[in-house]
Design a protein around this nucleic acid. Structure first.
Lengths: 202, 202
DNA sequence: CCTACCGATCGGTAGG
DNA sequence: CCTACCGATCGGTAGG
């Protein structure tokens, strides 16, 4: 018999993960140490450790926690639209999510990707999987928009996804590093211009 | 009297820094530890330490070393051109530098910026200074191109610099994280399209 | 979920 | 530029 109920243990786990994601966005997923994290939530190190079994499992759980928050915001905001309207909507929701600054360190995945892009392992694999799938969402909507005649037939959906993704990541970079208050507006403007140019001619 | 000549000491210092920049591009500027670095070049920890006096001074020296390599490549390649031709040239030289992969971990400054964008201190200040100045170079050439009538008068040079910078950073990101072999070609294509669109109408 | 540990490694120092 | 060391902290374990 566990001394505390499963519900209480799960609630503790969620509380740990929320704080961990915040710490990791600043210190990095590797700089997230069991000692500092447990101190920040007034638990013992091994009390935190017991919920995950290894640091790698903690890192993976933090990534999934951040992904769930991101998806809830971005997909929760978009309505029943498809194609170009949906592409515009989810890009705007993405920018809005970053503007609301869910973590102190800015975009969790931008930080995690830069940190782990050259460290093979399960953490890197999970980050690759999630970022690839997000790029595919953008690409898929661009494809639908082209098929529906909302974009010029010459448009390459993967190229369009690359450019939109670039603008939003650049805005996060410029805001976090330079404190550039124009950054998110620039991303909006760049996306609008790019989609305008990609519109069918006539 | 020093036991070894100043020249020899400086050569050792340069050797340390080259290796340190490579390690830091993978492990991060914080993950760059005196112990691992000294092991990698078969020196004692305190032998390396003595050249810098603190870990922060080592980090700053590594940043300046990476900046010198970047500038030598990018500005060394560009000729006597100005304005639009120069903007195209330095953007291409930048992409070429990243394609040649000077460090195992990809763009040194992209990694360093993501790591230190939320850690106040001299390291962050130096990264901000160098990245700001590079953005200003792009912006300045865009201004010149507009003044010379090579770009439409409605073009905002800062916005153009933002977009070009975004494409190259995105290419580095996609290549490092996803191993995307198309990434640098996509950046070239995006820049060409953006500058083509920004060219004067008529 | 806690206390009390483990070996390894960290940045940095003393002294030569 | 080296050996030998310092206190602090790391991820992880034993036992309750």
């Amino acid at each position: 018999m566990p001394r505390r109920s499963k519900e209480a243990a799960l609630a503790t786990r969620e509380q740990i993960l929320r704080r961990a994601a915040d710490v990791a966005s600043v210190e990095g997923l590797d700089g997230l140490t069991l000692g500092r994290l447990s101190g920040a939530i007034s638990m013992s190190k091994s009390g935190v450790f017991g919920h995950f079994g290894s640091k790698e499992e903690l890192q993976l759980a933090v990534i999934d926690c951040a992904a769930a928050g991101f998806e809830a915001h971005v997909f929760g905001q978009s309505g029943e639209t498809t194609g170009l309207a949906r592409l515009v909507e989810i890009a705007a929701a993405w920018i809005g999510y970053l503007e609301r600054a869910p973590f102190r360190g800015g975009c969790f995945f931008a930080a995690a990707a830069a940190e782990f892009d050259d460290r093979p392992g399960r953490v890197r694999d999970r980050i690759i999987e999630l970022t690839r799938s997000w790029l595919r969402v953008l690409e898929h909507e661009a494809e639908t928009a082209r098929a529906d005649g909302e974009l010029d037939e010459a448009v390459d959906p993967a190229q369009l996804a690359f450019e939109i993704h670039a603008f939003v990541q650049e805005a996060n970079w410029a805001f976090q590093l330079h404190g550039d208050g124009e950054a998110f507006r620039r991303a909006h403007r760049a996306i609008r211009r790019t989609l305008g140019v990609a519109a069918p001619r006539g």
